[in-house]
């Protein structure tokens, strides 16, 4: 069952890689966060920690409900065209994503995970982090960079919860709040870029050189 949820996470990540428009990207991010919520819930049921239920609830509220909603809102308010501006087309992006997944497998093996369930989980977590980073560098809109960052953060979360059995509750809360604040602040800056430059193409931000 848990393997299936992990499969869902990686599938949602691939969906983001091939997305060409803003709504598709946000929708896939919501799927990914939802699977993350499911896997935390599964872990909570299995281990019976009250803390884990709270963490799962936090993910549901923040990453499944609030963040995608806020992103939709920003996308509608700035009202620019919905194309993501792919620097690498979606077929090639998918191939790169597959290659990154393979690298993650090698990585998790060097860390000493060979066969069990955790090996799959760590591989998926690394893959999500790397693909998030790839999304950030290969898409032109400021908007996508924020999404890429959130994807990376999801990957880190997965990594943390399967590597050392979750971080202390306090740290988990602090990191989640941090994510929330950073999304709000980046949203504000996307607004500002749009207002000052009348576009959000990051590759056209080139006034500062040398």
């Amino acid at each position: 069952m848990r393997e299936l949820i992990l499969f869902g996470i990686i599938a949602a990540t691939y969906l983001m890689v091939i997305a060409k428009r803003v709504p598709a990207l946000i929708r896939s991010f919501r799927y990914q966060s939802f699977f993350l919520f499911l896997i935390t819930l599964a872990a909570a049921i299995e281990e019976g920690h009250a803390d884990l239920y709270w963490v799962a609830l936090l993910i549901l509220i923040l990453k499944v409900l609030f963040v995608p909603y806020a992103m939709y809102r920003i996308a509608r308010r700035i009202n620019v065209d919905e194309n993501l501006g792919l620097l690498v087309n979606s077929q090639l992006s998918l191939l790169i994503a597959l290659a990154l997944t393979y690298c993650s497998r090698i990585f998790s093996r060097t860390l000493g995970f060979h066969q069990d369930f955790r090996a799959v989980a760590i591989t998926v977590a690394f893959a999500v982090v790397f693909i998030g980073a790839f999304l950030m560098v290969s898409r032109m809109k400021a908007f996508t960079q924020v999404t890429g960052l959130l994807v990376m953060e999801n990957g880190i979360f997965l990594f943390g919860s399967f590597l050392s059995g979750g971080m202390p509750f306090l740290v988990e809360i602090a990191i989640s709040l941090d994510v929330l604040i950073s999304v709000i602040i980046m949203g504000l800056f996307v607004y500002r870029i749009n207002k000052v430059f009348t576009h959000i193409d990051v590759n056209k931000l080139s006034r500062l050189r040398g």
Binding site: V129, A133, M136, A142, Q145, L149, M152, E153, I156, S182, I185, M186, F189, R192, I193, V196, F197, V202, L205, R207, L208
Partner: peptide, 22 residues
């Protein structure tokens, strides 16, 4: 100051440092 240059600098700063710190 909300000028073009300063908004660009702030965006680069926040994105590059956030990725790094992840």
């Amino acid at each position: 100051y909300n000028s073009k240059e300063s908004v660009e600098a702030a965006w680069k700063y926040i994105i590059i440092c956030s990725v790094g710190i992840i």
